[in-house]
């Protein structure tokens, strides 16, 4: 049996539904831990509401947030996978059908003609990045990225001599200046590269690394830890009510830069960071490889 177009569409439908309705296990656990250690009563009220919201979305099979975001898709397609050229079209079919059913809010707007396409597809949307890799399966990373939490995101081009101090300053300012608006506690992605586009793209992709998992390079890991601690000194807190948790984590990635350039990309993601990963085999079998919150006997468990 070889994979069919229908297999791809049903796999992607499940991927999109899981992403919109089931919070990743690491995000749920980070909010739960924050709630347990927080003692500011207003921050705690917000964290408690966020937890109840995640659990209700899970039990009712409903979107975690009414802003179901912009779809970002990162594909690693094996060169032996039978339907290479149909993967993207199958994904578009899936997102159109899920939007038609009222699970996703139509969020794709033509900027020139101020028209909403109504189905979450349009010019360059979903935003898709494809890598061709050896093997015969497809590995998928998918994110529904909230609109409000894009607001603090920024690109800073700086002379290399000032690079690292400018990077730290840019991260702190991005989070401090926007306060409650991007729905903290946030996950912050940061990257350094030769060009602005590379830096922002890597910063966005770094958000897929689960909370608490550090960059494998020890220097990069120390930078993540330093920025995480510094950001949590700001006291923005859940929805701006103060307390210990302005961010849940910081992720850093990099590309080799040009001798003359040091591009810094900063991307922020709200507490409702919605992402999932999936593997599709050449036989058509597929499975969701990320852990999420699932209903179980009237309550919720991660798995």
């Amino acid at each position: 049996m070889a994979v069919t177009r229908e297999d791809l569409v049903s796999a992607f439908r499940e991927l999109i539904l899981t992403t919109a309705n089931r919070i990743p296990a690491d995000v749920y656990e980070a909010i739960r831990d924050a709630d347990m250690s927080e003692d500011n009563p207003l921050a705690k009220a917000q964290l408690g509401a966020i937890l109840r919201n995640m659990e209700l979305a899970c039990k009712r099979g409903r979107p975690i947030c009414q802003d179901t975001g912009t779809p970002y898709l990162f594909l690693e397609i094996g060169d032996g996978f039978p339907l290479r050229s149909q993967v993207i079209e199958a994904f578009k079919d899936a997102i159109r059908s899920v939007t038609r059913e009222g699970v996703l809010r139509p969020n794709a707007v033509d900027p020139l003609y101020a028209r909403n396409s109504g189905d979450n597809t349009g010019r360059y949307i979903p935003w898709i990045h494809v890598d061709l890799v050896p093997g015969d399966r497809v590995d998928v990373k998918f994110m529904l990225k909230g609109g409000g939490s894009e607001a603090p995101s920024r690109l800073v081009m700086t002379p290399p001599l000032k690079g690292w101090s400018k990077l730290k300053e840019a991260v702190i300012r991005a989070v401090a200046e926007y306060g409650p608006l991007p729905c903290p506690p946030l996950i912050v992605g940061v990257a350094v590269a030769a060009g602005g586009d590379i830096a922002l793209s890597l910063a966005k992709k770094s958000l897929f690394r689960p909370i608490g998992v550090r960059n494998s390079d020890p220097k990069a890991a120390r930078l993540e830890e330093e920025l995480y601690k510094a950001l949590n000194k700001l006291g923005v807190g859940p929805h701006g009510f103060g307390g210990k948790y302005t961010v849940l984590d910081v992720k850093f990635d990099y590309a080799y830069r040009h001798p003359a350039s040091f591009a810094i990309g900063v991307v922020t993601s709200c507490w409702a960071t919605r992402r999932a990963t999936m593997t599709i085999e050449s036989s058509g079998e597929w499975r969701i490889t990320s852990k999420h919150l699932y209903p179980s006997n009237g309550s919720c468990v991660t798995g």
């Binding site: 919201n53 995640m54 209700l56 979305a57 009712r60 409903r62 802003d67 409650p180 729905c183």
Partner: peptide
């Protein structure tokens, strides 16, 4: 008053 941003399921409930 502020209601928790993003908590769309809790509000619907």
């Amino acid at each position: 008053t502020v209601f928790t941003g993003g908590a769309g399921a809790l509000a619907a409930e």
